[in-house]
Write a protein that binds this DNA or RNA. Structure first.
Lengths: 203, 203
DNA sequence: AGTAATCTTGAATGTGCGTTCAAGATTACA
DNA sequence: TGTAATCTTGAACGCACATTCAAGATTACT
């Protein structure tokens, strides 16, 4: 039936670099949105020919789902490393929010979140994609909750607003921050908002 | 050149009900997004034939812009009435947030904001639409700022975080609330989040 | 009622899309 | 090297879309 596709240059029988291909694809999806990212754009971005994409990912939706999976993997690794390199919750989340707010004020493709952008686009049109995206977003909220719980046990924050409540508010704030940024990037306001958000979450 | 179109039943030379048509169109745009709302869907939703739409609004984008204008008009009127029927800022914003959060947990088309949904979709693709949407969103933020300023003068809230800062945080929170709701509608969490948001804005 | 001007209608048009698949290229192995 | 199996390639397909426009319907006015 379906087998793995190969790269353009078929001198070696090695498969194409799947991670690289998926990162190129996710960038295209973030830049133009799912439906406006044509297969033509995807073949240019990935360097794969239509046939190879269909061979490896079934169809455009399959490539999206694989890209989302890679995106989640990358974001999780990034967050884990960020947590490891900070010894207290405040500086960790500060760095985290800076990493989010900084690209927001730019015009890079990374200023949007692949998960929320795609969710907003396909909401009510594709239940499978919606489920995958929701699950990934929930999983990340749980990661934040874990980090907050550890900080509680270390006595860095009080236990009164629970880690779950704090995580929910933080996630809501991040969603809002990104949308706010897309309405016209006032860097100063964005920085102030993320500061206030952090203060409130760690209150 | 181009003139006004008429209704299906042309017994009378009266123009079609523009407001009604635009409200039907905006509902369709909110439900399916701009690009996935085909002209066929729009003809069904509005009851107008393609020729009439092109006669009255030039093209699909023109119908979108007219719908956005109507949306803003309706939202402004709604907000003004809401403010008039509450004598203090807290109950006014409470009602305002409830009006936002309640449909979010449902599956109505009104659970999304036409402005932010369309902005996220066309961002980086159409500068004119982007500008119009950003301007409308900024204008609404200024309405909130005005209301907060009036509350300050009445002594209901302190002047320390300025009305502008409060309005910005509130707007960010609303954006976040809606996105958060779209990830899986936990009504209870949504209510708690909007309560916390209000408390913080009126701190 | 007759006529010119205007409006309505929806089939036709061209374009761009996701997807397929047969032909050609490459490999693995004898 | 010869041959079968597998992989690569991109032109071609059908479809859905936004848009147009000529033909028909209605109006306004004499």
């Amino acid at each position: 039936m379906r087998t793995q596709a190969r790269l353009h240059a078929p001198m070696r029988s090695a498969e194409f670099d799947k991670e690289h291909v998926l990162r190129q694809a996710m960038t295209a999806f973030m830049q133009h949105g799912y439906s406006k990212t044509s297969m033509q754009k995807l073949t240019q971005a990935t360097g794969l020919h239509p046939g190879s994409i269909y061979c490896a990912f079934n169809n455009k939706k399959g490539l999206l789902l694989a890209s989302v999976e890679q995106y989640q993997k990358d974001k999780n690794a990034q967050f884990a490393q960020l947590c490891a390199s900070h010894d207290n919750i405040k500086s960790a989340l500060q760095a985290f929010l800076t990493d989010i707010a900084h690209p927001c004020a730019s015009n890079e493709a990374t200023k949007v979140c692949l998960l929320t952008r795609t969710l907003s686009e396909v909401d009510g049109q594709d239940d499978e994609v919606t489920q995958v995206l929701s699950n990934n977003l929930s999983a990340f909220e749980r990661s934040l909750e874990d980090v907050l719980n550890k900080a509680m046990k270390k006595g860095e924050i009080s236990s009164k607003p629970s880690a779950k409540e704090r995580a929910q508010f933080l996630v809501m704030g991040i969603y809002g921050l990104r949308t706010y940024a897309s309405t016209g990037n006032d860097t100063q306001a964005l920085n102030r908002l993320s500061e206030q958000l952090l203060e409130y979450v760690l209150r």
